[in-house]
Design a protein around this nucleic acid. Structure first.
Lengths: 154, 154
DNA sequence: CTTTTTAGTTAAGCGGGCTTAACTTTATAT
DNA sequence: ATATAAAGTTAAGCCCGCTTAACTAAAAAG
């Protein structure tokens, strides 16, 4: 018997754990590679959501397009991303990760994920099955929630 | 039948989802309350780990004690934290949240947790039971891993 | 009791992110 | 065809976080 208040407590606690872990690893990796957090965030966005234009960046991070343009500039100068004209509308600049940029992001992700594997190694077969099932349920619920939220803003 | 590679994938995906959610909400709330991310991070640390001294802050965020002192200064000026001499060693300054600071942090946490409850509301009774069980397993494993890691550095 | 170490503060200066404002270029509307 | 709007860029200037370096005060070591 699990009521929703109890589950909420458990989920929140887990979320805190993950968030703390991730945030520390994330900003640490940004620093270690000589990048600022905003710069690295842009790489992450490009990795997870694919190419986008300048206004896509300024929207997502809630900064002016001027700021986005300047940040992109620095990343281009470091060879981590590329700017290209959009074929249909020459005003918009399509921003994509270079191979160097991809490698950097993937390396950072890999490092942060080491903790996940460490965690898994502590579970027995039965626990693994249970965890896998539960997380699939949660991820699916999150996906649905996200889809509905996007529909409302659109 | 769940092998560890598959579980790793699922866990990573879920971790990504949580991290993205949290990070956005977190920096958004910092901005909305007129604080910088580093400043808010300090409040979070005080909330989750209790009072600490200046070197505790500089260690955790990997900044010099000068930087920590300056950040603390701004938070004190805004009435969010308090500095007090340690009774046993008058060199060290004990930093604690004021009521105003507590309220600010708790409000931020509450907002970020709204998503969790939204998620739970999408689950039926059976799913809730499964999720609760799995997360308890994971949180416990994480706690153990953390404990071991601390033992090694100590 | 001096010397050294530890905790923290203060000030100067650098670099980064961000904004506003002025501008260029391309697309859309009338 | 002209006016207007939209996407980016550039430059000036502000604030902030951070570091180094010089300093104060308190504790520990000798």
């Amino acid at each position: 018997m699990t009521d929703s208040a109890q589950l909420s407590r458990i989920l929140r606690k887990w979320m805190d754990t993950v968030t703390h872990r991730s945030m520390r690893g994330w900003s640490h990796h940004a620093k270690a590679t000589g990048m600022s957090v905003p710069q690295f965030s842009i790489l992450m966005q490009l990795h997870y959501r694919g190419a986008c234009d300048i206004s896509g960046i300024s929207d997502r991070f809630e900064i002016t397009s001027a700021a986005a343009s300047q940040l992109v500039d620095k990343l281009v100068q470091n060879g981590l991303i590329e700017r290209a004209e959009h074929p249909d509308d020459r005003r918009v600049k399509q921003v994509t990760l270079t191979n160097k940029g991809k490698r950097l992001v993937e390396h950072g992700i890999e490092q942060r994920y080491r903790w996940v594997d460490e965690l898994i190694s502590r579970l027995n077969a039965e626990q693994r099955t249970k965890v896998a099932e539960a997380l699939t349920i949660l991820t699916e619920a999150a996906r649905e929630a996200e889809a509905e939220a996007e529909k409302q803003t659109a």
